[in-house]
């Protein structure tokens, strides 16, 4: 609220700035129902029908509705409660049905694949707290910048250009990929040091003369605490982060040296 007021005041205070305003992103705001169980619910319209009350669930990769709603919408029959499977390992080869539109508070996704499933948890919630007809999951909310505010009891959706990956395909790929017994993590650039795992994280074992690590002042014995603001818990963890740091990019480290945390900037170079 304070933020909203401030934004309004700010806009009023600098009319010249708002006059040549950039195209305003459309923000759709929907009320959030807070269930006694701690779940959050939204009102949704599907193919213009409803509203139906659905749980907004950041832990659900997919969006689904109950058989009750499927019947109202005339969708093909869904899976039985235990047949749907949490990870898409259901009885039916294609457990999804396509709906023309799913609308939550004016945020609309068109031609949307929805699963028909009587999920036991949703049935329990519905039994205790009144009708609940499914879950709004990642396939919907990831297409928006989604802001949850439990205190204000509202959720806002701003369209972004993000297409959620097909979870069925990636899970299937992960299940079929049974041969990979070893994964090599490759840094994208040359730092000029060796690491070994200590009790509290990776420790620099050696620094090569004339290397980016040497030039930045890193020393053998330094324990690496963080890289670009992210915790580094192991040598592999450091290599994982370093995979995204291109030659010539500035990397900000925090190292622990004789009882103190020191910031160190390194610019790794092309090499390996």
């Amino acid at each position: 609220m304070k933020r909203t007021i401030a934004v309004v005041l700010l806009a009023a205070a600098i009319p010249c700035a708002s006059a040549r305003a950039l195209p305003q992103p459309v923000i759709h705001v929907a009320p959030l129902h807070l269930f006694r169980s701690g779940h959050i619910g939204v009102s949704a319209r599907i193919n213009g029908q409803g509203p139906f009350r659905l749980v907004l669930d950041t832990g659900s990769p997919i969006t689904f509705v109950s058989n009750r709603v499927a019947k109202i919408l005339g969708l093909p029959g869904g899976a039985a409660p235990a047949g749907g499977g949490m990870f898409g390992m259901g009885m039916s080869l294609n457990p999804f049905a396509r709906v023309k539109s799913l609308d939550v508070g004016g945020a609309v996704v068109k031609d949307f694949d929805i699963m028909v499933l009587d999920h036991p948890v949703i049935q329990m919630l519905g039994t205790v707290e009144g009708p609940v007809d499914g879950i709004v999951g990642f396939t919907f909310f990831s297409r928006f910048r989604t802001t949850l505010d439990y205190a204000a009891k509202r959720v806002s959706f701003t369209p972004i250009s993000f297409e959620p990956p097909d979870v069925m395909k990636s899970v299937f790929r992960a299940l079929m990929d049974r041969n990979g017994t070893r994964r090599v993590v490759a840094p994208a650039a040359l730092w000029g040091m060796t690491l070994e795992d200590g009790a509290d994280g990776p420790v620099i074992k050696s620094v090569y003369d004339g290397s980016p690590a040497a030039e930045s002042g890193l020393r053998a014995g330094d324990r690496i605490v963080s890289l670009d603001g992210r915790w580094v818990e192991s040598t592999i963890g450091f290599f994982d982060r370093a995979a995204d740091i291109r030659p010539g990019a500035l990397a900000s480290l925090v190292v622990h040296r004789v009882g103190r945390d020191l910031p160190v900037n390194v610019i790794p170079r092309a090499g390996l």
């Binding site: 017994t181 070893r182 994964r183 993590v185 490759a186 840094p187 090569y208 090499g271 390996l272």
Partner: peptide
């Protein structure tokens, strides 16, 4: 098994 890429030490 996750392993760090092997190191050559060349720029």
């Amino acid at each position: 098994e996750v392993v760090p890429r092997g190191f050559l030490g060349i720029e």
